[in-house]
Design a protein around this nucleic acid. Structure first.
Lengths: 147, 147
DNA sequence: GTAATCACTACTAATTTAATAGAATTAGTA
DNA sequence: TACTAATTCTATTAAATTAGTAGTGATTAC
């Protein structure tokens, strides 16, 4: 029950855009370098994020990507959902037709409620929260070199 | 971020054993028939469940499987964990060594806390709870044939 | 001793994941 | 207009995972 790289990388991509918020579009190349993720692979993740209205892009020279809204108005849930699809822990929760047992299957109900709880948790975390936690953690980090 | 058939089938297998609790060992063949799951595949799931101390088995004629403890004393968390391994949403939470960024990566902290919340939710659901909900649902079910 | 049952191991087809590669499109600027 | 920098789109692929199937061996009740 692991989150794939899509969701994980999308979260890191969005964090970089949030850290750059208000400073114009950010190059995908820079995001890729800072997060040590393949630029080409990130290139595939921005499409669904844009389709979901979470980021905007400008092409050509001096182009790049920027958050479509303020960090406080973007939830982690939206980010993960954009790249991973619905967050149901089992497929039958969203696609009842795939199983003939849905009407009698109590485990489906349980997985459904758990999926809702998980979604609520993800909704409660905003990109702004992640920025705060990142800044706090950065300032607590020891330097990686000695003077 | 889906639960695999291992976790889902294990939950259904354990529910059948719980419904049969106190009536001696239950044949895997009967579990397979009632739940419409391949008996051979279920045969692979019982090994980790037994290793985790959740079920006991008796071999030979009149053998079968039974819960090792009362349904109220077995949590859904134990069942899923037995067959799926640890419930971390991302691998680096339990295996920090696989990524050099763990010390500075704030998203790892977030996935870690979410994994904990999910684990708590699963711990709060006992097999007895599932039996209750199953019985309630069964009695509310309309008959599948008309008189 | 034989039939019934669990136990163990090996194999496999299909799907998903995690990319890589390259051509096409768009926009700013000299 | 031509050039360059950037996103956008589509195809391909190697590796890993999933969801089984198959067969043989070990154990026990009768």
């Amino acid at each position: 029950m692991r989150l794939s790289t899509k969701g994980r990388y999308a979260a890191r991509l969005m964090l970089e855009l949030a850290l750059h918020y208000g400073k114009g579009p950010m190059l995908l190349r820079d995001v890729a370098e800072r997060e040590e993720i393949s630029e080409k692979y990130l290139g595939q993740l921005v499409a669904p994020l844009k389709a979901a209205g979470l980021i905007s892009s400008s092409r050509g020279a001096h182009g790049g990507y920027a958050l479509a809204n303020a960090p406080k108005d973007i939830s982690l849930c939206e980010i993960v959902q954009a790249v991973e699809g619905n967050l149901a822990l089992v497929e039958c929760v969203h696609s009842p037709k795939i199983c003939s047992r849905v009407n009698s299957c109590v485990t489906r109900d349980i997985w459904g409620r758990l999926s809702e709880r998980l979604t609520e948790e993800l909704e409660s975390i905003s990109l702004q929260d992640i920025v705060y936690q990142h800044r706090r953690k950065q300032s607590a980090q020891p330097l990686t070199y000695t003077i």
